[in-house]
Design a protein around this nucleic acid. Structure first.
Length: 432
RNA sequence: UCCACAGUAGCUCAGUGGUAGAGCAGGUGGCUGUUAACCACUUUGCCGGGGGUUCGAGUCCCUCCUGUGGAGCCA
């Protein structure tokens, strides 16, 4: 008898007796026969309890099962064409670990707020389970790609003395005698310090924005990967971003076929995105929007609708590069060929999933950077360490930040990113 | 912060100014192949809070609260 078999592996044990452990997803009964849907985190299987083959006590235990009860089940694996998974278990014995109390999440549809209130239980549902597996794959794929391409993990601090880009969107926390600290809204500036030691680095951690955003693309706590590389310039930076994202797409298709099916995500749509990305300049993007009838000028940022319009006809992601410097950050390098342009890029996912990467070549000239920081009225004392990087052996370098949840949202075809993280934090929700 | 919409049973919702409803869940019983199983019976209410109009308000008005969708900002 094979003990502690995972449901995903039952195919290796056809006509053998196995022991499975898991939770009861659902139960149906018809007099002398009961159907128990068992899940164990790896997959699901239907266990069939047929009264004439069991003792009264065993059958009664099956009758008493409630949704989400935890059990250990003995049975023989059978191939069965009637089963959606191809296999069934002929139950021979059952041990109840716990009869679950009345489970709040039902087989019928629920409202968003109720599900979020029960997020600690909602994660067990099929779709959420699939999304969490895809999240794992995306996370793992990003770090695998970086590890295989010479990037060292170099973690940025979460408690920071001040903002990367202004203080209005920072969460403030009390901090001993110093008075206050802030939760990081980006690890990028710290990542830049790492490349002067390690050449190529990345951080990957939670970041925080106290912005009162209330859209399907925003969380107040989200995960971001910041990669930074010495001696890499603007065009090569975009190439790294493209290779990374295409690697992620391939990994998700390879490892999460079942999950994509559960989510009704069309795999072909994803496969088509694994192709050379389109590159347009900000100016070309504005031209495109103007021909589509949008009232937008060359010195403006896009709104949500415009961002979607840029990729609405595209099956592959679009890089929008070389933005006017005044709508982009101070640390971005000015284009040597055009003093009003920053050497930066936004990567916009197709199908309206929005911006998933922001990247740029960084300003490596001490004087230019200092001048720009003064223009932005940044507290120079706090940023002296950042300026120091341009005094002690400055080099051309570039980097980018990937928004994990948005990338997962695109991969899985889920419009609202609150489902792509185990416990979403939003403007009016910090629990459970 | 702004705009729009919503709040009625555990959940999802219906409810024309005149007795508070359905489906699901829960409970009891039935059924040897169910796939959100089905069939019969059955328990469950501060109609978000406060104020007003009215003989009478779940329904109309004001206000507050909570949530949802979107905008702005961004990843």
């Amino acid at each position: 008898m094979a003990e502690h078999v995972l449901i995903k592996d039952v195919g290796k044990h056809v006509d053998e007796e196995v022991i499975l452990s898991g939770w009861v997803r659902n139960k149906r009964s018809s007099g002398k026969i009961q159907f128990i849907i068992l899940r164990d985190g790896t997959a699901e299987i239907q266990a069939v309890a047929f009264h004439p083959n069991l003792t009264d006590s065993q059958f009664e235990k099956c009758e008493n099962l409630t949704m989400e009860s935890s059990v250990k089940i003995w049975g023989k694996v059978k191939k069965d064409e009637r089963s959606p998974t191809g296999y069934e278990l002929d139950l021979t014995n059952i041990e109840i670990i716990q009869i679950a109390a009345e489970y709040p999440i039902q087989k019928k549809s629920h409202g968003v707020n109720f599900l979020l209130d029960n997020r600690h239980l909602w994660v067990r549902s099929r779709k959420q389970h699939a999304l969490l597996k895809i999240r794992h794959t995306v996370y793992y794929a990003i770090t695998t790609y970086l590890n295989e391409n010479g990037f060292y993990r170099y973690d940025s601090p979460i408690l920071t003395p001040n903002a990367c880009e202004g203080t209005t969107t920072l969460f403030k926390v009390p901090y001993f005698d110093i008075g206050k600290a802030y939760l990081s809204q980006s690890g990028q500036l710290y990542a830049e310090t790492g490349i002067m030691s390690l050449g190529r680095v990345y951080d990957f951690g939670p970041t925080f924005r106290a912005e009162k955003s209330k859209t399907r693309k925003h969380l107040t706590e989200f995960w971001m990967m910041d990669a930074e590389a010495a001696f890499v310039k603007h065009k090569e930076n975009m190439k790294i971003q493209e290779e990374l994202i295409r690697f992620v797409i391939r990994q998700v298709i390879k490892k999460n076929e079942n999950e994509l099916k559960t989510l009704k995500r069309d795999i072909e749509t994803l496969r088509k995105a694994d192709a050379p990305f389109k590159v347009i300049t900000h100016k070309e993007a504005i031209d495109l929007l103007q021909t589509k009838g949008y009232d937008i000028g060359y010195d403006e940022d896009f709104g949500a609708e415009e961002e979607e319009a840029i990729t609405e006809d595209a099956e592959i992601p679009v890089f929008v590069e070389k933005w006017p410097k005044h709508i982009k950050s101070f640390y971005m390098k000015i284009d040597p060929d055009d003093k009003d342009i920053s050497l930066c890029d936004d990567l916009i996912a197709p199908e309206g999933f929005g911006e998933i990467i922001g990247g740029s070549e960084r300003e490596d000239d001490y004087k230019i950077l200092k001048k720009r920081m003064k223009e932005e009225e940044l507290p120079m004392d706090e940023y002296q360490w950042y300026l120091d990087l341009r005094r002690y052996g400055t080099v051309p370098h570039s980097g980018f930040g990937v928004g994990l949840e948005r990338l997962i949202g695109w991969m899985s075809g889920v419009r609202h990113i609150r489902q792509t993280i185990p416990f979403p934090r939003m403007i009016n929700r910090v629990s459970p």
